[in-house]
Design a protein around this nucleic acid. Structure first.
Lengths: 255, 255
DNA sequence: AACAACACCGTACATCGTACGTTGTTCGTT
DNA sequence: AACGAACAACGTACGATGTACGGTGTTGTT
């Protein structure tokens, strides 16, 4: 009864949903015509997550936004995690993919990292989903993968190394987005500005951060903090890190 | 009534808990003697998360493991997120910190990355907590920071660059742990082996992964997959990535 | 002896994902 | 034309979650 493998074959339900429309055009269905399409559900859910934040992403909220009863969502999607997978793949599918033209690999790979950062910044909920769940291979993921691999054309890397290099770059970008997401979340639910936070916690920290016990930490922490205006600056971290990433790949490519 | 800033001063409750015992030795308290210590709560919670997994980490479960009623936990800790912050800092505090001796920077930084990877592997729940919440500065975090900064002694990097370099390395390690965590979670709740998964989904993917449409993706994906025995191998990704990270830092340090 | 501070507990609430059974619409078959 | 299977949509309900709130009993201070 509850056998997932009974519908279109012995396959993952999510994969079939991701690649919907790529098979035979469906042999006519019975029952009432669906009042809403899966596309509508996915796009509404994305819009909701974008405007209300990832915490507002619930079955009930999505259903309400689409205009149906909570449980009716389950006629379109097996569950919440599958919905998020579909949302992610949708964004991957529609994200811009500018032609690489005659640019050098370094410029291309930099563009890959920046495009991913921009996407993750535009949809903060994406960060949490992608980081924790590794969404399955859909058409969006596939198109993205193809395009990003092309950034390494002409580097002379082996296929295996090309894959590893791209994975490395994407991992870096994802981590940056996650870190930025973390500081923003912390700022949001502390409810105070950096200055207020330091006014409140500075005394305690000053009394406890003994320069004799933590010589490097105190000195370097202060240097970094005053250079950036905060203990951690996502912009600085991204630009420093991306330079290191590219240098690290250069050592492999130009050897 | 619900003013957090009424205890030891106008400070964050979490910070005060993290640095407990570092202030004046408490001016005697009234009421019944606490039946359990905060240390006991923290260590029990860690043990519980280690054995039962991160999903089992709930107020009720921790309270039961410690041996008290659910709501009694709140006399020791303001809330669940604060508890996890304390758990993280505790692990940081007790993690091994071998002396650096005469090793070169590359070997030291590699050791930093590996130590962090090992810690995150030993406590998979740590990955989720650290990635999503950026725990505040406690004694464990501080000791860890001090020790890891020392790995960059003698590199000639400026204070600001040293901090950025360490952040870069830690971010890489964290991302690796997250990715590994992701594949393990996926494997766990798919409930099938890689072979079973491919047997079930191979046909659909084969029919849809058109080599003419995705030439690089199909070729390189297959190459990477068969080289590693899976679409993503955490061990390979870590070792490839760490080499790139070190090369990238070398370009900065040895310039 | 009276009071205030404190640890601990029980009940209760909003919110979450979702299992289950029902209702009404529609197509394929008789 | 009539019937039955398939299907979309819905309502109700369950077990979790974190935690607000008000009590109860123990203890040190006045």
């Amino acid at each position: 009864m509850t056998d997932d493998r009974s519908g279109t074959g012995p396959a993952d339900r999510t994969l079939a949903l991701l690649w919907r429309g790529h098979g035979p055009p469906a042999p006519r269905r019975r029952g009432p015509a669906p009042a809403h399409t899966l596309e509508e559900v996915i796009e509404t859910a994305i819009a909701l997550a974008d405007t209300e934040g990832p915490a507002a992403l619930s079955v009930r909220a999505v259903a309400a936004a689409v205009g149906m009863a909570p449980m009716s969502l389950y006629t379109h999607v097996p569950g919440m995690t599958e919905l998020t997978d579909l949302m992610v793949d949708h964004l991957y599918l529609v994200m811009p993919r500018p032609a690489w033209g005659r640019r050098r690999w370094r410029s291309r790979v930099r563009a890959v990292a920046e495009a991913n950062r921009d996407l993750l910044r535009a949809h903060p909920w994406l960060v949490e989903v992608v980081a924790l769940s590794r969404p399955p291979l859909g058409p969006g993921q596939m198109a993205k993968y193809e395009h990003e691999l092309a950034a390494f054309d002409g580097t002379g890397l082996s296929d295996v190394d090309t894959d590893a290099a791209l994975t490395f770059v994407l991992g870096f970008t994802q981590q940056q987005a996650l870190a930025q997401h973390g500081v923003e979340a912390a700022r949001r639910d502390s409810g105070s500005t950096d200055a207020q936070w330091w006014a409140a916690n500075g005394p305690l920290l000053a009394s406890v951060l003994d320069p004799a016990r933590y010589p490097r930490a105190v000195r370097i922490g202060e240097a970094a903090g005053s250079a950036q205006g905060a203990a951690y600056d996502p912009g600085v971290a991204f630009s420093f890190g991306l330079d290191r990433v590219l240098d690290g790949l250069a050592a492999l490519i130009e050897a």
